[in-house]
Design a binder for these strands. Structure first.
Lengths: 169, 169
DNA sequence: GGCCGGTACCTCGTGTCCGAGGTATCTCCT
DNA sequence: AGGAGATACCTCGGACACGAGGTACCGGCC
């Protein structure tokens, strides 16, 4: 829906764009995409205009309907908790948050993410005791995992703070 | 399987440990975990020892069988491409890569990841032209997304290079 | 004494994802 | 001329994840 809000597209191109989000979003399989398009069309979220073959087979150009626009905005404004906590989902949310077009609402979403990130969290526990990188002297892989996770987290927190001040100004 | 290779656990605790991997791995629902345990038990990957109620209901302590150990090692040694490219999967792989216990094989896995990360990639395209942060002057969210992604990527690449030299030494 | 919340396991229906397979057209190379 | 490969859409079966609901036991609070 985000990509369709950017511009009308046909299914195949949509699939390629999602695939380009490598590493952060899993590519969508054919057998997932087309049934989903049908479902969304039935639900009135998008319109389909068949365009006689430019390249090969006829393209079905998909356009987000007003209903689809509204649904996208709703999901951007009040994302499920998973979209805040899960890296992959958060990434997609961020990629299209511009469409929300309301600095206050955008700020609220960023604050939810910031709140999640600044909560003390450890990945591994010994009972109730949180384990840190130093607790794995013989596991360089987990130490690396901590190193990467903290670096990412720090960068993102700094960016979120920047954004929040510039949004409320 | 990784957590069970660390130590035998009962299902409930297993679920809590996965849930602690917040932000990187989605929590597993009850209705997913228990059928999966049954399936793995039937497949001979784990053993179940019922331990009469210490806290409340009787605990079923799960132990990875030799077959399960072998399967874990196989998946660590030759992970599906998705475990290399998808952040979430890669994270779990890294968390248990220590169990592979063969520097050469560990190095091969790290090299696959490094190879993936160093491939030129952009998230958004204008036809064939890769778009960079500067191409979104009116979208601070996508600029942030690039900023965070590059920072993470850089940290991880540096770490991977460190690890690879220390593994082959 | 009763009830709430946490522990611990389980089942079932719904939804959805994927891979395998299929169809058809166009371009490019040989 | 013909085949390979990309483009573009579609269907179906199997696998599996999830939420809702259920059972049962324990400890602590009022």
């Amino acid at each position: 829906m985000g990509f369709l809000a950017d511009a009308p597209l046909h299914g195949y191109e949509l699939r390629r764009r999602v695939a380009a989000l490598t590493g952060h979003v899993r590519p969508i399989a054919d057998g997932t995409l087309y049934p989903t398009i049908k479902r969304m069309e039935r639900a009135g979220l998008l319109r389909r205009d068949v365009q006689a073959g430019q390249m090969a087979a006829p393209r079905h150009v998909l356009t987000l309907s007003p209903g689809g626009q509204a649904e996208l905005l709703r999901q951007l404004r009040e994302p499920d908790e998973l979209f805040i906590t899960d890296e992959n989902r958060w990434f997609t949310l961020l990629a299209f948050l511009r469409h929300l077009d309301d600095p206050a609402a955008q700020g609220a979403v960023l604050r939810r993410r910031l709140n999640f990130l600044t909560q003390p969290a450890s990945f591994f526990w010994d009972g109730d005791r949180p384990l840190r990188a130093d607790d794995f002297p013989d596991d360089p892989f987990r130490r690396g995992l901590f190193r990467i996770a903290t670096a990412t987290s720090r960068t993102e927190i700094a960016w979120l703070r920047d954004m929040l001040t510039s949004l409320t100004r």
